[in-house]
Amino acid sequence: MNGIMLTLTGVCALIAVSVLMFILGYLVWNGGRYLTWTFLTHLPAPVGETGGGMANAIVGSGKLLLIAALTGVPVGFMGGVYLSEFGGKTFPFMVRYTADLLNGVPSIVMGIFAFTVVVLPMGHFSALAGGMALGAMLIPIVVRSTEEFLRAVPLTLREGALALGANKWKTVATVVIPAGFQGIATGILLSLARVAGETAPLLFTSFNNQYWSSGFNQPTASLPYMIYIYAISPYDDWHRQAWAAGFILLALVLAANIGARLILSRGIRVARG
């Protein structure tokens, strides 16, 4: 009994890990195969014709992330500073709890929200609307990670600064935030990685565009959206491109995750040593 059950738990872990390995392996093998220079540098070809690429979607995803970072990070960061440094008891608890709930809001609902508050008043789809939908999704993640890393800053540091006569806000700005900065930046990186792959909020906000979209006021192509419409299409060439795009997206997301982990674990080692 003992042995059987223990082995079974091991099998469970093995299954979970092997699923990931399979996904990774399959995407690298299948997506990497179809990754060409043309794919990275050309615009999509007219439907049904082979060739073309997703250059505009790669750039479009970058733009969306930029807007998301510009709108979501300041709010999330300052909110996190508040929770960790200035908060009392009840109100911060409510903020924290609401942030967690907001984090659980289905992404498609965020899309509806961005549609009604950005797209409809503006009168058209735009990169801005898509980026803001993603930005709204960033906020709760950044709030929580910022708070967590600021809390991890040792009390002695704050006390030291205060003892030297610094104000509270000066202490926070010059001692606490710099000390927790590495973690906070990592948290932001992770949150960006998470929203980079979101498709549902973009369906009716940033929409799509087969050309370059200039500025932030026009609809724009994005990698997740292109993967979606290419994958459900009947064209073999589009399927190949969907795999290649999936490979790029996954590579970026996983690189950010692994990078974040490396930064954090090294940081901890330094702190311990």
Partner: peptide, 21 residues
């Protein structure tokens, strides 16, 4: 860590794998 990476895989990629595999 590996399992947490699985949580980071975008859902549209699960969709593509779903359709084709």
């Amino acid at each position: 860590f590996v399992i947490e990476l699985l949580a980071a895989v975008p859902s549209v990629i699960f969709g593509v794998l779903g359709i084709f595999i």
